[in-house]
């Protein structure tokens, strides 16, 4: 009984380790080597569209609403201390340091990550990847690499858009609806937000999350069992694994950046 459990644990640990190894090999094969800009550029632009532009709507809407909710919630607490003047920094810092990068990463995993996994898994199942290999075109360079770079570029951009829209949403609720002074919304924000400490650190977070999400999504697709069931499982795994990994890394990064 116990030995069986231990055996299973050992086996799944080894499986995970092997999967991690394969994902590393995949990324290495995709990214190492001299880039070919003539062929790579149009592929990158196409993927920036599919991964970045098509995710923009969900990011804009979520950012707006999360900013509005933050202002509403924050106001009810702050007003008890007569500190509603601090609404600006509350909204801005929450978004810049935490919610912008994290929520963008979670939405991105759900919107773009799952789609990428399904797309690549399906290409594998229909032998498109094999076919490409037999045509002496490396699928790692041709399929994986442009998607990786497009994801790593798109996500920090999306996170900035999310944060900016959220701060505007907070302004909408706080200033236009709840009657916080508009000047103090911005000026207390400016006094408390620092370019390096907050804006740049938030950006660094979001680059790290981008690598995590896109790497997991691509690997799960590339490693999927090439059947419809295998692909659906890989897609679910992408969302679950990417979300949990992002949250874990968020804790570590927050502790490193703002903890000391």
């Amino acid at each position: 009984m116990i030995t069986e459990k231990l055996q299973n644990l050992g086996r799944s640990t080894i499986d995970n380790l092997a999967g991690f190894g394969r994902s590393g090999v995949m990324l290495f094969g995709a990214l190492v080597g001299k880039p070919n800009f003539r062929k790579g550029w149009p592929l990158l632009v196409k993927q920036l569209y599919v991964i970045g532009v098509l995710s923009l709507l969900i990011i804009l809407v979520s950012g707006l609403f999360i900013g509005m909710v933050l202002a509403l919630q924050g106001y009810t607490v702050l007003v008890k201390f007569g500190a509603e003047g601090m609404l600006g920094p509350l909204v801005a810092l929450s978004l810049l340091r935490e919610l912008g990068p994290v929520v963008t990463a979670l939405l991105f995993a759900g919107r773009a990550g799952s789609a990428l996994t399904a797309e690549i898994g399906l290409m594998k199942a229909t032998e498109q990847l094999s076919g490409m290999e037999m045509m002496a075109v490396d699928p790692l360079r041709r399929i994986i690499a442009p998607r990786f770079w497009a994801g790593v570029i798109s996500m920090p951009l999306l996170a900035m858009v999310f944060t900016a829209v959220g701060i505007l949403g907070g302004h909408l609720i706080g200033v236009n609806w709840l009657g916080v002074d508009g000047g103090s919304y911005w000026s207390t924000m400016q006094a408390n937000v620092d370019l390096y400490q907050d804006v740049v650190n938030g950006l660094i977070k979001s680059v790290v999350f981008a690598v995590i999400v896109i790497w997991i999504a691509l690997h799960k697709g590339f490693d999927a069992v090439p059947t419809s069931e295998g692909i659906s499982r890989a897609t679910t795994q992408t969302v679950v694994t990417a979300s949990l990994t992002v949250l874990g890394f968020d804790f570590i990064l927050t502790a490193l950046m703002f903890g000391g």
Partner: peptide
């Protein structure tokens, strides 16, 4: 597609400028 991607990048740069200048 190129135009839309360009617009996306411009929007993101505008967001960054707002965060850097107006917010920070």
């Amino acid at each position: 597609i190129e135009i839309l991607v360009g617009a996306f990048i411009v929007l993101a740069v505008a967001a960054f400028l707002m965060l850097a200048l107006k917010v920070a």
